[in-house]
Design a binder for these strands. Sequence first.
RNA 1: GCUGGCGUAGCUCAGUGGUAGAGCACCUCCUUGGUAAGGAGGAGGUCGUGGGUUCAAGCCCCAUCGCCAGCUCCA
Length: 637
Amino acid sequence: MSVHVILPDGARREFPDGTTGLQVAEAISKGLAKVAIAVRVNGEIWDVRRCLPAECALEVIKEDSPDGLFVIRHSAAHIMAGAVRRLYGSGVKFGFGPPVEDGFYYDMEFPDHVKVTEDDLPNIEEECRKIIAADYPFERADVPHGDAVRRMEELGQPYKVETLRQDIHDPTASLYTDGDFIDLCEGPHVPSTARVRALRLMKVTGAYWRGDPHNRMLTRLYGTAWASQKALDEYLRRLEEAKKRDHRKLGQELELFLFHEYSPGAVFFLPKGAILYNELLAFLRREYRRRGYQEVITPQLFNRKLWETSGHWEHFRENMFVLSVDEEEYSLKPMNCPSHMLIYQHRRRSYRELPMRIADFCALHRNEIRGVLAGMTRVRKFEQDDAHIFCTAEQIEGEVFGCLDFVRHVYERVFGMPYEAKLSTRPPTFMGEAALWDRAEAALKTALEKAGVAYAAAPGEGAFYGPKVDFFMKDAIGRDWQLSTIQLDFQLPRRFGAEYEGADGQRHVPVIIHRAILGSLERFIGVLVEHYAGEFPLWLAPVQVVVLPITEQEEAYARSVHAELTGAGFRSEIDLSNQRLSYKIRAATLQKAPYMLVCGAREAASGTVAVRARKEGDEGVVRVDEFIDRLRREIGV
RNA sequence: GCUGGCGUAGCUCAGUGGUAGAGCACCUCCUUGGUAAGGAGGAGGUCGUGGGUUCAAGCCCCAUCGCCAGCUCCA
C-alpha cells in the first residue's frame, strides 16, 4: 500500500502508507516543513501529523497565510482556555472558542464569585506564554460519540456535552489535548503550542450562550494571534491608526458634525461638515447630468396605504416611525422607492420614456433599536444618493453597465478606493417568474464581464424580489465597507401595477433597478473622514486655504489676499489672532488645511504669498494670481 | 432589545461622603514675533436627569436618558 499525493503544481508523488502531511512537506523542502502549520487535503484543512488517505490532493498551508492564521488563532483559543483553567480551576465551563477575523475568542462561564475583567488579562496572557514556551504537542483523538460525552461529563463541561448532543451527529467526535488541557474540537490545530508565536489578549465582554438573550451570559475573552511578533505589532499599530482616524473623534476635532441626546441617531452637520455634504451632492449632480438622471424632491410623510401597497407595512413596519395625522396613520418614509412609483404612475408611460432614471436625496427615517446606533455609521435619519431606474428587461444589461461605470468612476478615479463586487442570485424562495430571473441574472453577469469588474458569485443570496450586486470598498488602511449597491426588483412594479406601453402596442411591466453609489451620505462621510484621516482633498476640504499675516503690519495685505481667494470661489480663512507665526501654522495644521499662505513684509511688498502645503511643507513664494491658477488646476475646474 | 462600562468647564480628563480641580480652548492686557504652542491676568460647572439614603452626596442606592463596547463568520 502506498499514498498517492497530487501537489498544487500538478506533480504526482508516491509515499509509503501512513505518511503524514508534515513528511510530505519535508520531502519537498526543509524550509517548507518549518513553516507548515497545517495541510489542505482534498479541500479540507488537516493537522500536519494526520496520516494521509491513499489518494489525495495536498497543499501545505504556511503559517502566514490566511488559512494558516485561522489555524493559529484556533489553537490560540485553546491555549487561552488552558491558561484560564490553570488559573481559575476546573470549575470554569467552556462554550465556543472559534477563530474570528484578526483573532479569536472563547466563551466561558466562571464560578459565581469570580469576576474576570481586563485587569486580569495580563496575568492570563502570562500563563498562555508558559504554555507556549512548554511547546506541548496538539494531539488529536477520534473517539466514539458516547465516549466523548462521558469524557466531557467527567470534566464538568455541560456546554460541551450540549454541543455534542445537539450539533454533532457523527458516530465519532474529536478531542484535542495540549499539555494538561483537553477540549472537544473539530480542529485542525498547529503541531505544537510554540507555533503560536505571537499572542495578545485584547478584551473581556459578555456574550449569551449561542447568542440567545434567553440563555445565560458567558464571559467572552478576546485575543489576537499572529505568525510573528512583527505581524502582531503591525496589527496593533493598525488598530491605533484606526482609533486616530475614528470619524467621531475627528468629526468633533474638526467641527464637522455633532450629536445631541435630544435626537439620538441623527447627525447635526456643522458648517464645515455641511460643506462636505454639499460638495458631494454637487459632484453627484454633475454626474447625474452627464448620465441622464432626473432629480426629484418627494414628501417625508405618507399615508399607511402607500406602505400597504409597497409591502413595507407588512415587512418593514418595526423600523418605521408611525404617527397619526388627521386620525389616520402616516409614516416617515424609510425608503424612496414607493414615492418614485407614484411619480412613475402619475400618467401613462411609453417605452420611449425608458429607461427613466429618477434620483432623490430626500431624508429617510428608520427606527433602529437603540443598541445598534453608532456614530455616523448606524443612524435613524439619513439621506442616500438614491435612484430608481425604470426600464425594460432588454435594457437591464445596459443600465447595469452604466451603474458599474458610475461606481468605477467614483471609487477608482475620485476617491481612490479599490473594491470588489458580489453577485447575489435567486434565493430558494423567490417571487416572480423564473424565466425573468434567469434573464436578469444573465444580464447582470454580462454587464459585470463587459465592465471588467471582478466579482464573487453568491448563489441564493439575492433578495426575494430580485438579484443584486453589492460592492465592498477598501479604505486607506485596508478596511472593507459595503457602500454601493445595484438591486433589481421585479416585485414592486407588480404591487403598484406599473406599466408601459411597448412598441407592440401592448402593456408591459417595467423592471426597477434600485441603486446607490455612495449609499447613506452620513455613513459615506464617516467613511471618508476615516479614509482621508481628516485630510480631505482640496475639492472637499472645508477650509482650503488659511491666510497667515506675520504681524499686524501685514493685516491689510492679508485681507486683500483672502478677498481674492474668496472672490475666486475658494474657501479661505484668515488668522488675525495676536500670535506668533509658528502658533498660527500649528493651528492651521491641526485643522488639516491643504494650504497656508504666509504674508510677511516681503510678500506684501511684492504681491506674493509664501505657500506652505499640508504635506510638502514650505514651497516658497508665488504671486497670488499664480497660486489661484494652481488651485484651479488642482481642483480640475 | 439584552449585558457591561461611562456621563464633572467648549474639549481631554483628575476628584470615592465634609468649601468643585488641571491642561488646552475662550476673553483682556503685554509682546510685533518668518514656518507645529511667547508671557501675565480673567471668566467659565444646579458634577446627564428625577427620586432616595445621610447632619452632609459629584461620590452610596433606585429609576431614567444618552454615549461606548459586546451579543454563535457553528465543537
